[in-house]
């Protein structure tokens, strides 16, 4: 079985994001970029499934500018087998990403797609569910445990009230949550090996997908800053402030 893992290039999660003065977006020049952290978890899960003998190939797909190939290389260095880069310079919305991924699924016929639950740049939390709908497949979102059988998978999902156990028919789309696994670091030999692994390039047009944005971003602003507070010297002073100044207890 083949596993497809969509990986997105995003601003590194440690970077403090800055809004551009002209409110057209956030500053991306000279900013450290990385693989979306949830996608690292997705790659790790695919690797574990392959290592358990339940998959034979892991294909990474990234939609974005040419530098997205670096993101694919990161995943190849973790151990994935090959990559597909779909070149796109403008921002591609989740619905269009899902359509592009569907086109790749039709070519590659994977038995499983493992996505991140959310890209930490747009915070959309949509793409996996949309892909699953377009394919008419089952979806297992926010997975914190994946137990893969031959025709079905048992999934534990992190939901607002706690955990939920479901079973999905394969092929399916799984979106992963933080506690599914801890992604490995790429070893130096694997980083070297990854340089030789193939990455195919495709264009949006080749896949016959209309990726025209449906949403227009009118402006991007800085949120209102909180005014600096005070330090209290003791627990007694804290309780007094909360009772008599803030009046919240």
């Amino acid at each position: 079985m083949k596993i497809l893992v969509p990986v997105k290039r995003v601003i590194d999660y440690n970077v403090k994001v800055r809004v551009k003065p002209d409110q057209s977006g956030v500053e991306l020049t000279n900013v450290k970029m990385a693989m979306n952290p949830f996608d690292e978890i997705a790659v790790e899960q695919a690797l574990r499934i392959k290592e358990a003998g339940k998959a034979d190939e892991i294909v990474l797909v990234s939609v974005g500018p040419s530098q997205s190939q670096e993101t694919i290389r990161t995943g190849l260095a973790m151990g994935a087998d090959r990559g597909i880069h779909i070149e796109a310079d403008q921002d591609i919305e989740p619905l269009a990403v899902a359509k592009l991924l569907k086109a790749v699924v039709k070519k590659e016929s994977p038995g499983l797609v493992i996505c991140g639950k959310q890209a930490i740049d747009d915070d959309s939390n949509q793409t996996g569910q949309m892909l699953s709908a377009l394919l008419g497949w089952a979806q297992a979102t926010f997975a914190s445990s994946v137990d893969l059988g031959s025709e079905k998978a048992k999934i534990i999902r992190e939901v607002d009230g706690g955990l939920e156990h479901i079973e999905v028919v394969l092929p399916a789309v799984i979106t992963v949550d933080l506690r599914l696994n801890e992604p490995r670091y790429a070893s130096l030999p694997n980083i070297m090996k990854a340089k030789k692994k193939p990455i195919d390039s495709l264009s949006v047009d080749e896949l016959s997908v209309d990726a025209t944005p449906r949403l227009k971003v009118l402006k991007v602003e800085e949120p209102a800053a909180r005014s600096a507070g005070i330090k209290v010297r003791s627990v007694a002073e804290l309780v007094d402030k909360l009772k008599n100044e803030a009046k919240v207890i």
Binding site: K16, P94, L95, I120, D123, L215, V220
Partner: peptide, 30 residues
């Protein structure tokens, strides 16, 4: 298209939503 996690309604087509963990607020029109 879906507009996720709106925090304000500007008009019937236009909404505000946080991006980048709330470090920026985007106003988007559908």
């Amino acid at each position: 298209a879906q507009i996720s996690d709106i925090i304000a309604v500007i008009d019937k087509d236009t909404f505000q939503r946080p991006i980048y963990a709330g470090n920026a607020l985007a106003t988007v029109r559908s």
